[in-house]
Design a protein around this nucleic acid. Sequence first.
DNA 1: GACATTTAGTCAGTCTACTGGACTAAAGTG
DNA 2: CACTTTAGTCCAGTAGACTGACTAAATGTC
Lengths: 133, 133
Amino acid sequence: MFVSHRSIEQRVLARLRESGYEITAAQGRVFARIGPDGTRLTELADSAQVTKQTAGFLVDQLVRGGYVERVPDPSDARARLVRMLPRGRLVQERAREVEDEVTAEWTRHLGEPAMATLTQTMGRLREITDPYA
Amino acid sequence: MFVSHRSIEQRVLARLRESGYEITAAQGRVFARIGPDGTRLTELADSAQVTKQTAGFLVDQLVRGGYVERVPDPSDARARLVRMLPRGRLVQERAREVEDEVTAEWTRHLGEPAMATLTQTMGRLREITDPYA
DNA sequence: GACATTTAGTCAGTCTACTGGACTAAAGTG
DNA sequence: CACTTTAGTCCAGTAGACTGACTAAATGTC
C-alpha cells in the first residue's frame, strides 16, 4: 500500500512540476482537502492529521505560490477560510487528469473488475482506518 | 491507500513504543528491509527509495538503539552489512504480531474473501509501482 | 450579563528526515 | 596498470513536523 501510494503521489507531483506548479507532497495533502467553498485551517489540520501549526505553515506556502487565499469566515470572526484561487483550481484539474491516467494504467494491469473491487475495498477500509471520516 | 497505510504504520509504531522500542516511521521503513543475513547500506537505500546518506543516518540511529550492528562484508572490503541484533529480532516479532492483529481486524470488517483479494491485488499492483522489485 | 471554558489561529524554538555535492577507498575492467 | 564504477562517509542546507505558550473571539453557565 505504501509503495503504490508513493508511486501515484510522486507521479502526480512530477507532472505538476512539469506543468510549472511547484507543489510538495505535504502541501498537496493539505491542498487536496480544501472544499469548494473554502475550509478552515483547523479543519484542514484535523483531516490531514497534522497540527494546526503545520497546516498553517503549509497554507502559507500555498498562499505564496498563488494557489489559495485566506479570507475571513463570515460566520466566525476568529476563523478564516482557506479558499482556492483560479491558479489552485488549475492545479486540481491537472492533478485529476494525472490521477485518471494512472488509474487507467492500473486498470490495464489489473483488469477492469479487479480495479473496481480495489476501489470499493479501499473505500470500505477507510471506514475503519480514517479517524476523521 | 494513504490513510490505510498510515493507520497500520502508526498502530505498529505505537505498540512498539508501548513495548519499550523507540522506533520512528523512517527508521522502521529501513529496518523492515534488512534481510536475514544482513543487507548492505546501498541496497537498503535503493529499496527504501532514499539516498545513501539518509539510509546511513537512519541506520546510525538503529545502531545506537541496539537493534542492528554493522559488520564488514566478507565478500567486499568496501561494503559493510547491516545485521539484526537479538533486540532487533524481538522488534520484528512484535511488529509482526501487531500486523497480524490489524489484518485480523480488517478481515472482520471486509470479510475473508475481500481481504484475500485485496492482499493479492496489492501484490500485483506492486509489480508496476515498485521500481525496485 | 459576568465569568469560565472552549475554539481558531499565531509565534518561537526544536528535532527528524531528507537532499545535493564533494570525497576516500576498494573492486572490477579494458 | 590506468580508468571507471561502486560502497560508504562527511559537510552543509532545507522542509516538514512537533511542543509549548500565547491572543482573541465565541460559547456555555449560573
